[in-house]
Protein backbone atom coordinates (compact mmCIF):
# COMPACT_ATOMS: atom_id res chain seq x y z
CA UNK A 1 0.00 0.00 0.00
CA UNK A 2 2.67 2.47 -1.04
CA UNK A 3 1.13 5.69 -2.30
CA UNK A 4 2.76 6.92 -5.51
CA UNK A 5 3.28 10.59 -6.30
CA UNK A 6 0.26 12.30 -7.79
CA UNK A 7 -2.66 10.66 -5.97
CA UNK A 8 -2.64 13.31 -3.26
CA UNK A 9 -1.90 16.98 -4.02
CA UNK A 10 1.37 18.59 -3.03
CA UNK A 11 0.17 20.82 -0.16
CA UNK A 12 -1.46 17.83 1.57
CA UNK A 13 1.59 15.65 0.92
CA UNK A 14 3.87 18.31 2.41
CA UNK A 15 1.60 18.77 5.42
CA UNK A 16 1.76 15.04 6.12
CA UNK A 17 5.52 15.16 5.67
CA UNK A 18 5.57 17.68 8.52
CA UNK A 19 3.28 15.61 10.74
CA UNK A 20 5.29 12.46 10.05
CA UNK A 21 8.57 14.24 10.74
CA UNK A 22 7.26 15.27 14.16
CA UNK A 23 6.03 11.73 14.84
CA UNK A 24 9.33 10.17 13.85
CA UNK A 25 11.17 12.76 15.94
CA UNK A 26 9.16 11.74 18.99
CA UNK A 27 9.81 8.07 18.16
CA UNK A 28 13.55 8.73 18.04
CA UNK A 29 13.35 9.95 21.64
CA UNK A 30 11.09 7.11 22.73
CA UNK A 31 13.29 4.49 21.10
CA UNK A 32 16.27 5.67 23.16
CA UNK A 33 14.62 4.46 26.33
CA UNK A 34 13.28 1.32 24.67
CA UNK A 35 16.51 0.08 23.09
CA UNK A 36 19.50 -1.51 24.74
CA UNK A 37 22.72 -3.03 23.39
CA UNK A 38 20.90 -6.37 23.46
CA UNK A 39 17.77 -5.27 21.59
CA UNK A 40 19.32 -2.90 19.02
CA UNK A 41 20.51 -5.75 16.74
CA UNK A 42 17.05 -7.34 17.03
CA UNK A 43 15.47 -4.06 15.89
CA UNK A 44 17.85 -4.15 12.91
CA UNK A 45 16.85 -7.72 12.13
CA UNK A 46 13.13 -6.92 12.38
CA UNK A 47 13.62 -4.06 9.92
CA UNK A 48 15.47 -6.29 7.46
CA UNK A 49 12.85 -9.03 7.75
CA UNK A 50 10.01 -6.56 7.10
CA UNK A 51 11.82 -5.21 4.05
CA UNK A 52 12.25 -8.77 2.74
CA UNK A 53 8.67 -9.81 3.55
CA UNK A 54 7.26 -6.73 1.81
CA UNK A 55 8.75 -8.03 -1.46
CA UNK A 56 6.34 -10.97 -1.30
CA UNK A 57 3.01 -9.94 -2.74
CA UNK A 58 0.42 -12.62 -2.06
CA UNK A 59 -2.79 -12.93 -4.11
CA UNK A 60 -5.96 -11.99 -2.21
CA UNK A 61 -8.70 -11.82 -4.84
CA UNK A 62 -8.99 -11.87 -8.60
CA UNK A 63 -6.21 -9.70 -9.94
CA UNK A 64 -5.33 -8.19 -6.56
CA UNK A 65 -2.37 -8.78 -4.30
CA UNK A 66 -1.23 -7.57 -0.92
CA UNK A 67 1.93 -7.64 1.10
CA UNK A 68 2.90 -7.37 4.73
CA UNK A 69 2.83 -3.87 6.22
CA UNK A 70 4.66 -5.03 9.31
CA UNK A 71 3.39 -2.56 11.91
CA UNK A 72 1.97 -5.19 14.25
CA UNK A 73 4.92 -7.53 13.76
CA UNK A 74 7.44 -4.82 14.57
CA UNK A 75 5.46 -3.39 17.50
CA UNK A 76 5.16 -6.78 19.22
CA UNK A 77 8.76 -7.82 18.51
CA UNK A 78 10.68 -4.63 19.30
CA UNK A 79 8.19 -2.23 20.89
CA UNK A 80 6.19 0.61 19.31
CA UNK A 81 8.90 3.31 19.33
CA UNK A 82 11.52 1.23 17.59
CA UNK A 83 8.78 -0.19 15.32
CA UNK A 84 7.86 3.31 14.17
CA UNK A 85 11.48 3.88 13.16
CA UNK A 86 11.78 0.42 11.64
CA UNK A 87 8.85 0.87 9.25
CA UNK A 88 10.03 4.41 8.45
CA UNK A 89 13.49 3.13 7.48
CA UNK A 90 11.90 0.52 5.19
CA UNK A 91 9.61 3.09 3.54
CA UNK A 92 12.39 5.62 2.95
CA UNK A 93 14.72 3.02 1.44
CA UNK A 94 11.93 1.65 -0.76
CA UNK A 95 11.14 5.11 -2.10
CA UNK A 96 14.77 6.13 -2.59
CA UNK A 97 16.29 2.92 -3.90
CA UNK A 98 13.42 1.03 -5.51
CA UNK A 99 11.06 3.85 -6.57
CA UNK A 100 8.37 2.01 -4.53
CA UNK A 101 6.12 4.73 -3.13
CA UNK A 102 6.49 8.34 -4.29
CA UNK A 103 9.11 10.75 -3.05
CA UNK A 104 6.67 13.55 -2.22
CA UNK A 105 4.35 10.83 -0.86
CA UNK A 106 6.88 9.69 1.77
CA UNK A 107 5.14 11.67 4.51
CA UNK A 108 1.76 10.16 3.55
CA UNK A 109 3.15 6.65 3.61
CA UNK A 110 5.06 7.11 6.87
CA UNK A 111 1.90 8.53 8.45
CA UNK A 112 -0.25 5.56 7.37
CA UNK A 113 2.16 2.71 7.99
CA UNK A 114 4.70 3.88 10.59
CA UNK A 115 2.47 6.04 12.75
CA UNK A 116 -1.13 4.82 12.30
CA UNK A 117 -0.18 1.22 11.44
CA UNK A 118 2.25 0.70 14.30
CA UNK A 119 0.31 2.49 17.03
CA UNK A 120 -3.11 1.09 16.16
CA UNK A 121 -1.48 -2.34 16.17
CA UNK A 122 0.21 -1.76 19.49
CA UNK A 123 -2.96 -0.45 21.14
CA UNK A 124 -4.96 -3.39 19.79
CA UNK A 125 -2.28 -5.87 20.88
CA UNK A 126 -2.21 -4.44 24.40
CA UNK A 127 -6.00 -4.54 24.79
CA UNK A 128 -6.42 -8.08 23.43
CA UNK A 129 -3.50 -9.38 25.48
CA UNK A 130 -5.16 -8.07 28.65
CA UNK A 131 -8.41 -9.82 27.78
CA UNK A 132 -6.73 -13.19 27.23
CA UNK A 133 -5.41 -15.53 29.92
CA UNK A 134 -1.75 -14.80 30.73
CA UNK A 135 0.94 -16.84 29.04
CA UNK A 136 2.89 -17.36 25.87
CA UNK A 137 -0.14 -18.53 23.91
CA UNK A 138 -1.84 -15.13 24.20
CA UNK A 139 0.91 -13.29 22.32
CA UNK A 140 0.41 -14.71 18.78
CA UNK A 141 -3.38 -14.41 19.15
CA UNK A 142 -3.22 -10.78 20.24
CA UNK A 143 -0.70 -10.10 17.45
CA UNK A 144 -3.01 -11.81 14.93
CA UNK A 145 -5.90 -9.52 15.82
CA UNK A 146 -3.67 -6.44 15.90
CA UNK A 147 -2.36 -7.24 12.41
CA UNK A 148 -5.85 -8.03 11.11
CA UNK A 149 -7.18 -4.66 12.28
CA UNK A 150 -4.11 -2.69 11.26
CA UNK A 151 -4.48 -3.13 7.49
CA UNK A 152 -8.02 -1.76 6.93
CA UNK A 153 -7.27 1.04 9.41
CA UNK A 154 -4.11 2.01 7.49
CA UNK A 155 -6.19 1.84 4.28
CA UNK A 156 -8.77 4.13 5.90
CA UNK A 157 -5.97 6.48 6.82
CA UNK A 158 -5.16 6.75 3.11
CA UNK A 159 -8.83 7.54 2.42
CA UNK A 160 -8.60 10.29 5.05
CA UNK A 161 -5.68 11.78 3.10
CA UNK A 162 -7.62 11.30 -0.13
CA UNK A 163 -10.56 13.19 1.36
CA UNK A 164 -8.29 16.12 2.20
CA UNK A 165 -6.23 16.38 -0.94
CA UNK A 166 -7.19 14.01 -3.73
CA UNK A 167 -6.25 15.00 -7.25
CA UNK A 168 -9.01 12.78 -8.70
CA UNK A 169 -12.69 13.61 -8.26
CA UNK A 170 -13.96 10.11 -7.48
CA UNK A 171 -16.25 10.36 -4.39
CA UNK A 172 -14.58 9.61 -1.05
CA UNK A 173 -17.31 7.11 -0.11
CA UNK A 174 -16.61 5.06 -3.26
CA UNK A 175 -12.89 5.00 -2.57
CA UNK A 176 -13.47 4.16 1.09
CA UNK A 177 -15.77 1.20 0.36
CA UNK A 178 -13.31 -0.28 -2.12
CA UNK A 179 -10.19 0.37 -0.02
CA UNK A 180 -11.73 -0.98 3.16
CA UNK A 181 -13.13 -4.22 1.71
CA UNK A 182 -9.95 -5.00 -0.25
CA UNK A 183 -7.74 -4.38 2.75
CA UNK A 184 -9.84 -6.52 5.07
CA UNK A 185 -8.75 -9.41 2.84
CA UNK A 186 -5.11 -8.32 2.84
CA UNK A 187 -5.36 -8.03 6.62
CA UNK A 188 -6.00 -11.76 6.87
CA UNK A 189 -2.68 -12.44 5.13
CA UNK A 190 -0.99 -9.87 7.35
CA UNK A 191 -2.44 -11.56 10.44
CA UNK A 192 -1.18 -15.02 9.49
CA UNK A 193 2.34 -13.86 8.57
CA UNK A 194 2.54 -11.78 11.77
CA UNK A 195 1.36 -14.45 14.19
CA UNK A 196 3.40 -17.24 12.57
CA UNK A 197 6.57 -15.14 12.68
CA UNK A 198 5.97 -14.19 16.30
CA UNK A 199 5.24 -17.81 17.22
CA UNK A 200 8.56 -18.83 15.66
CA UNK A 201 10.46 -16.20 17.66
CA UNK A 202 8.58 -17.11 20.87
CA UNK A 203 9.51 -20.77 20.37
CA UNK A 204 13.21 -20.02 19.96
CA UNK A 205 13.97 -16.82 21.87
CA UNK A 206 10.89 -15.75 23.85
CA UNK A 207 13.11 -13.45 25.93
CA UNK A 208 13.61 -11.23 22.88
CA UNK A 209 9.90 -10.54 22.26
CA UNK A 210 8.99 -7.06 23.53
CA UNK A 211 5.30 -7.91 23.84
CA UNK A 212 6.14 -10.85 26.11
CA UNK A 213 8.38 -8.84 28.41
CA UNK A 214 7.89 -9.31 32.11
CA UNK A 215 5.77 -12.41 31.63
CA UNK A 216 8.43 -15.03 31.20
CA UNK A 217 11.51 -15.60 33.27
CA UNK A 218 11.49 -12.14 34.80
CA UNK A 219 8.26 -12.94 36.60
CA UNK A 220 9.73 -16.11 38.09
CA UNK A 221 12.73 -14.20 39.41
CA UNK A 222 10.49 -11.64 41.06
CA UNK A 223 8.53 -14.37 42.86
CA UNK A 224 11.72 -15.89 44.21
CA UNK A 225 12.91 -12.55 45.51
CA UNK A 226 9.59 -12.13 47.32
CA UNK A 227 9.86 -15.54 48.90
CA UNK A 228 13.35 -14.73 50.19
CA UNK A 229 12.19 -11.51 51.75
CA UNK A 230 9.49 -13.38 53.68
Amino acid sequence: MHIPDGFIDLPTSLAFMGISAVGVGVALKGAKSELSDKTAPLAGLATVFIFAAQMINFPVAAGTSGHLLGGALAAVLIGPWAATLSITIVLILQALLFADGGLTAIGLNVFNLSLVGVWVSYAMFTVVKKLLPKGKGAIPIAAFIAALVQVPIAASSFVFQYAIGSVATIPVSTVFAAMFSTHVLIGIGEAFITSLTISAVLATRADLVYGYRGQGKQLEIRQMVNRDSI
Partner: peptide, 25 residues
Protein backbone atom coordinates in the same frame (compact mmCIF):
# COMPACT_ATOMS: atom_id res chain seq x y z
CA UNK B 1 5.63 -13.01 -5.59
CA UNK B 2 2.27 -12.21 -7.17
CA UNK B 3 2.62 -9.63 -9.92
CA UNK B 4 -1.00 -8.51 -9.61
CA UNK B 5 -1.46 -4.88 -8.54
CA UNK B 6 -1.63 -4.38 -4.76
CA UNK B 7 -4.79 -3.30 -2.96
CA UNK B 8 -4.31 0.44 -3.43
CA UNK B 9 -3.27 0.15 -7.08
CA UNK B 10 -6.18 -2.15 -7.85
CA UNK B 11 -8.69 0.18 -6.21
CA UNK B 12 -7.18 3.13 -8.09
CA UNK B 13 -7.47 1.21 -11.33
CA UNK B 14 -11.04 0.00 -10.72
CA UNK B 15 -12.36 3.32 -9.46
CA UNK B 16 -10.55 5.29 -12.12
CA UNK B 17 -7.89 7.38 -10.39
CA UNK B 18 -4.79 5.38 -11.28
CA UNK B 19 -4.06 7.86 -14.07
CA UNK B 20 -3.38 10.59 -11.48
CA UNK B 21 -0.26 8.68 -10.37
CA UNK B 22 3.01 10.18 -11.51
CA UNK B 23 6.25 8.40 -12.18
CA UNK B 24 8.55 8.71 -9.20
CA UNK B 25 11.40 11.13 -9.85
Amino acid sequence: ASSSPDGLEKVAEDKGFLDTAQESA
